[in-house]
């Protein structure tokens, strides 16, 4: 029997299928995972400058103190948080009864994530923030 195939493509399906917690968590986990792996390569490469001596390393570190890089670092932390916290959820699903409360778990973990993200923002930009306040006074 001949049947015609009229498949939608993979990415179109992923985009169009109505997603709930699990679907979003999966997409976030994948994207953040890929990004972090790529970043790991960059990180290892950057660290290898330690072997080139103090000047080279300090120059690099100075670069990372620029606001743009600080912002990127903050963004990176968002990826780390998303991946880490969702990782906890996945472990709960795999080894506990997480399948039954995964939606709640995701919600709570993401609230923790947002708080941690803001707190980290304060730490990263503490220098700039204190300057702003100093200026005001």
């Amino acid at each position: 029997m001949k049947v015609e195939k009229t498949h939608e493509g993979y990415f179109k399906l992923v985009a169009s299928y109505r997603k709930e917690t699990g679907g979003w968590a999966w997409i976030i986990h994948r994207i953040s995972g890929l990004a972090l792996t790529a970043y790991l390569y960059v990180h290892i490469y950057a660290l290898s400058n330690l072997t080139k001596g103090k000047e080279a390393f300090d120059a690099e570190m100075a670069l990372f103190q620029k606001p743009l890089f600080k912002f990127l670092e903050w963004l990176l932390f968002a990826f780390v948080l998303a991946h880490t916290l969702n990782g906890i959820r996945i472990v709960l699903v795999d080894f506990g009864r997480g399948s039954y409360y995964q939606k709640k778990a995701f919600a709570y973990l993401m609230i923790i994530g947002v708080i941690a993200f803001l707190v980290m923002g304060y730490f990263i930009f503490s220098h700039e923030i204190s300057q702003i306040f100093a200026g005001l006074i």
Partner: peptide, 26 residues
Amino acid sequence: GIFLIFAMVGHYILMHYTPETGHSYE
């Protein structure tokens, strides 16, 4: 994954809670 969670927490405390010592060459 579980190991990396703990390692990452330590790493971040070192790098950002103590940025002055954490980032210097020495």
